[in-house]
Design a protein around this nucleic acid. Sequence first.
RNA 1: GCGAAAGUGGCGGAAUUGGCAGACGCACCAGACUUAGGAUCUGGCGGGGAAACCCAUGAGGGUUCGAGUCCCUCCUUUCGCACCA
Length: 848
Amino acid sequence: MAEEKELRYDPAAIEPKWQQRWAADPKLYAADAADSGKPKYYVLEMLPYPSGQLHMGHVRNYAIGDALARHMWMRGYNVLHPMGWDAFGLPAENAAIKNNTPPREWTLSNIAAMKRQFGRLGMGFDWATEVTTCLPDYYRWNQWFFLRMHERGLVYRKKSKVNWCPECATVLANEQVVDGRCWRHEDTIVEQRDLEQWFFRITAYAQELLDGLDKLEGWPEKVRTMQRNWIGRSEGAEVDFFLAEDAVNAQNEDGSPRVIPAGRRIRVFTTRVDTIFGATSVQLAPEHPLVKDLAANDSGLATQVAQLLDEQKKAREAGDVGEIEKHGVPTGHFALNPYNGERIPIWVANYILADYGTGAIMSVPGHDARDFEFAKKYAIAIRRVIAPAASSAEEPELPFLSEDGVLVNSGEFNGLTCHQAQQRLAEIAKEKGIGEATVTFRLKDWGVSRQRYWGTPIPMIHCERDGIVPVPDDQLPVILPEQIAITQQGGSPLSRVPEFVNVTCPKCGGPARRETDTMDTFVDSSWYFYRYTDAKNSTQPFDPAKAQHWFPIDQYIGGVEHAILHLIYSRFWTKVMRDLGLITNDEPVRRLFTQGMVIKDGAKMSKSKGNVVSPDDMVAQYGADATRMYALFAAPPDRDLDWQEDGVAGVSRFLGRVYRLAMKYAPVARTAGAANAEPSGLSLKLLRKLHQTIAKITLDFEGRWHFNTCVAAIMEMVNEIQAADAQLAAGEVPAPVLRELLTMLVLQIAPFAPYMAAELWEELGGEGAVLRAPWPKSNPQLTREDELEIPVQINGKLVNVVRVPAGSAPEIVQAAALADEKVQSRIAGKIVAKVIVVPGKAVNLVIR
RNA sequence: GCGAAAGUGGCGGAAUUGGCAGACGCACCAGACUUAGGAUCUGGCGGGGAAACCCAUGAGGGUUCGAGUCCCUCCUUUCGCACCA
């Protein structure tokens, strides 16, 4: 009775004990500062927002990263595995309004709570390098970077249409608008407002950000594609059409090529300048400046244009711009094609966007699907100007969209291929000063102003005399005032704090106003991982030598929802820091892993669905080891994981079996010496399983990361050892073998169930921390079976398996297969036409 | 509409290069032990069939001695992009 009680696995006793011991050893999870020649490994999981509660998605994310970190420690790497808090942001302000708690207090107490959760989960983070982005020792460097970028012309201020979320009561970056809605408020339609805003000139790096993607081979293709789409490079040309009414002597009688007429120009952007002879109208965006001109004396037109604009806006807000029904109105004015002087009508259309390209297009219905649709609807001329390259008998139907063709009906350019014509026509445009080849990006500059309180103050001052004046470096940080009233009134809360707003101008010493916008919180997370390498530095953001040592990050792990926002901003920031001479790497992250979501009952966990599982509850009931191990066992890490509590119970039962098995034989194993005989029989069988398991898990850590099958493999091994319990109890396996089996089992469990591993490592007499023990090496002698089971097929259908010695010659395998009784009875009276022997794999008899 | 990934028992999932489909776990069934306990241990568990065997990886074709895996067509789900000129 008493004995059985001792053998009960009780995580509630084991885990707190080790948690205390680990907390008392700050060096345990610290990177080796002396860096004694070990190769470095920087493994990082995306830092959480301190909401106050870890959720299962966090547990999964950090269980993956922690397993990898622990494995790398055991492999002898100098591992940097830090953690921090993305601590600025709106929820703190909302909580302040709701509970009348200062955001700082709310945030810091949340951090304390989540840090406890991390501790309880046994996550191996080096808290000495903790970064909390809402503290001045961090955000001052946001300001410092802002000033450096300002000096380099990478920060600017402009009045522009911005995305405004009424719910957040602030501006959003383009990246934070999803289908016309706020990324945090799916039900809130984003409005457009005109505001003076600060921008980061991310477009200056558009091309490099795009090119760099090709080299990021360690990134999921999906993420690279998303970034490529987001950057949205398109090559084309801008060409000027002319307002016909301005042209002097615009029409040649004989239709010969024209002198370029003077007058108002309508610059269009096109990716298919080779089709310009097929342009049968010019289409303007409703907000195009010329439209206002043309409608000035035409109130009918003005009304119609207003309607078109309204349709466009509605479609944008509804997020279905692609579904809008195309409408347009003719202006009654005409444009001249700069290449042949052709007079074509100018229209205004609701599908032309003012903020892409030049806000005007040439419409070529013969070779563009949208233009075709539009021309059909309004009976505008449709003309073929491209023919297929191979002169096939039949002319393909219009619209003919391929760029694989030659020009026809295009005057002197007939016969050129599309690509030749694109080049040639752009050259001519350049020579004549009517256009040029251009590259257009969809990526827009990053608007970073937020009319909110809980963020990094923008270090700028508005002086009536000197205009905008940067805060001098020696006045950094601009401290966010902490005792202020936060209410839900419009505008930035900071603008109502006179002590903050009223300053003296650093230039003239006169009275001035401090900028009251704060920075987008994505600024904080754009470079936090550099700070980890030198988190306490008070004279610079980090020591370049330290960053140089650790960067790039070897493995970054997080959710795919950051594929655009965070991951493109941090790539941008890295390039800026490189150009500032702080670092030498071009990219922050070598390998990126995006784990799947945690779902329950087929849906993402959410309060509204009532399917949230609390990590605390799981840990309280089954322990941290079981919770973490289940998070790795239930699905491969890149797939969505369906949380089933019965599964956690199953893993917990498994850990109980491991515990009892190890504890039962620890007294024997602990004192065992070295093996003195070649293993055979049961010993050999068990050692074989052990070493095959080591080989499998080691391989998985090196890239495939199917930790679910790693856990399954350990289960198989434990099952096999346990099945031999009677023989073990009878002493059939020598103590040294038992010792090897158990210690190596414990070492393999260590990345997945650190508490259990620590406890059993100690019970087995292991030296020091299990984390510092070398990862087991599989012995190739032992991973190899000496007898193989070979399936025997007849016409591809399995009939039986035969056992043959490993490495048998094909003839031997064939003979064994043919000798098999079952096979014999099946081939009796038939002709064996062919025998295929795949060494080590299969035998197939083809019979007739 | 375009692009990508996925589709395997009652459920989560396994099968790394084409070679024994369903490892491992859950649920369930039966049994053992037992102060009847949400503990532990043993066995069973895709479908049909008494069995021999047959059928089965979303559907249909194909390649191959052999296909969950490769190719084609289609269906479904998820994700990304979508008047970007």
